[in-house]
Nucleic acid binder design. Sequence first.
DNA 1: TTTAGCAGTCATCTGTTTTAAGTGCTAACC
DNA 2: GGTTAGCACTTAAAACAGATGACTGCTAAA
Lengths: 346, 346
Amino acid sequence: MLTEREKMILKIIVNDYTKSGVPVGSKALSSQLPIHVSSATVRNEMAFLEEIGLITKNHSSSGRVPSIEGYRYYVDNLLNPNPIDNSDMMMIQNSLSGRFRQIDEIVQQSADILSNLTNYTALTLKPEQETTPILGSFRLVPLGNHKVMAILITDNDEVVNQVFHIDGDMGGDKLDAVVRMINDKLAGKPLDEVITKLKAEIVPEILKYVKNPDNLVQTLDDVLMQASTNQFYIGGELNLLSFTDNNDISYLKPIYSLLNDTDDAAKFIKSSDNSISVQIGPELSNDLLKDYSIITGSYDVGPYGKGVIAVLGPTRMPYSRVIGIVDGFRNELSKKLRNYYDKYNQ
Amino acid sequence: MLTEREKMILKIIVNDYTKSGVPVGSKALSSQLPIHVSSATVRNEMAFLEEIGLITKNHSSSGRVPSIEGYRYYVDNLLNPNPIDNSDMMMIQNSLSGRFRQIDEIVQQSADILSNLTNYTALTLKPEQETTPILGSFRLVPLGNHKVMAILITDNDEVVNQVFHIDGDMGGDKLDAVVRMINDKLAGKPLDEVITKLKAEIVPEILKYVKNPDNLVQTLDDVLMQASTNQFYIGGELNLLSFTDNNDISYLKPIYSLLNDTDDAAKFIKSSDNSISVQIGPELSNDLLKDYSIITGSYDVGPYGKGVIAVLGPTRMPYSRVIGIVDGFRNELSKKLRNYYDKYNQ
DNA sequence: TTTAGCAGTCATCTGTTTTAAGTGCTAACC
DNA sequence: GGTTAGCACTTAAAACAGATGACTGCTAAA
């Protein structure tokens, strides 16, 4: 347990350093303390804070910098989130007030807005229910010229489609038969179950109607995969440049591919609970991200599930400000999406 | 008209400089000349080449660097394109041999391959006919739950779709009536004509069937727009970092938005003729690109039109190598796409 | 427990020197 | 005439040497 004065000192170190990026020394610090103590006293306190691992030095005569543990302590105990400021809130409301064609667009645009507000990189994940989505229905629409569009609709209103080619001998009635068969067997089942059943039960059936079902089966597989992997969006990818010290492309490329990999990225931003969570550097369990922090906030769209928004920035980011923005944003986004769903699914 | 020796000297300057990035001096140059002349002689020749504007100096005692005019002369008169080397060709054939779901995927992947081969940024444009595409047919597929998918098919086999919401009172028969009406009036017409007719002739008709046609009309507009703007793809965007001297984000951002703007980017890579063209720095008529060159090559898919592939690199790029790659690639891509079309549209 | 004072460390800045690569010019050469 | 050796001059870049200033830790006195 730290004394009040130690807490104050740690708090100022984190605040100053995240703001300026310059290690903070005893003299500058003492002048900022609300109580009067000399720089020597501050030095003593700092020596203690260093001893217990909350701050470090870059070299023997430099000012102090928070350690990962220091940031953690700050985030858990010292931070009071800045409420989002008015102009930022206006900007969010403005950007979300446009006309959107579908959920995806709103979520995608959210990533852009969030990255603009913070000047960091933002990740957003669409709302999804706790349980795996359920296959609503399935269509095959002949488009002429040997083309067919497969359309898959899930119970959470997601529509996925893909065009494929068929051999000449397959008429509309055969397509209808296949569609009926698939819907009979699979509609109402969770997608993961559908995927496993596809190979075992459906393919043999399809063979009754179609001679060469490769394209059809592959397409089914594709749309199922697409519907069951959770789509996420990135905004402000380029900002990564400005807050990464090392601007070398060979350093950045792996980070970009990490971010663009659905499974990896989703892993980092899935927040377990219902609010805001902060993951700092090494806590992210991927060495590439050891100098970055991720702040995630979940937003709630009632019966339509929960989504996640997240900001990726440097470990030395102004946590209270960013947390305020994420919190303000997720509330606004919840509202917007509830409206959206209510409007079209009353 | 330059003498043979002057040409040789200019050629070596360009080759060396594009390879190393270091200004080339008289001594190093003389040792590379096939004929024996002293560095003093080379100095005299260089003074002349500088006088007529083909080369320049960075400062009074530095080696020489090609000017834009020098590059131009080199590209027009001195360059002999390196044929693409075997391993590169293998890599192209490998990457293009996979299974593709549609043209777009091939073209998109081409941008990635091309950027990997060159380590520059690549742009690719799908094949399109000389004339505006023609509306093949139009569909409205009810998906249940107030959702409808609009599908537009053009004569060059492009399929565009979008989901929209309708008010509760619109049944399948009404949709069918609208579809019939639109197809009757517009099928077979060029898309630009369709777009202009939409507002004038179609909207009033739609009003007969639908009370609140806003979403439908907007969707029609969207899919038409999407089908008539030419889609292009970018590969290796990040490479821009490694070949730009200034990797300040505020410098790069406008370049990225330029590249991502459909109209702007298409303007630069539309090559008029049937082969390879090189645009160097200021010739690109956009100040942002003054330190870059673009090499474009068109590929021909017979009756399905022509597409374009392009490489964006620094003005000091190894032109003969890159031209060789672009040339090899466009041939391979032509073959691949002809196969693809033949397979599904015999 | 706090503080003033002091010696010591180290990154950063400054100006200076050295080095090396290059030029232009002149005078001699074939 | 074109070609070349030689030399003085220029310049960027690297190497070096202080000087500066922001720090620290420690000690001893308040």
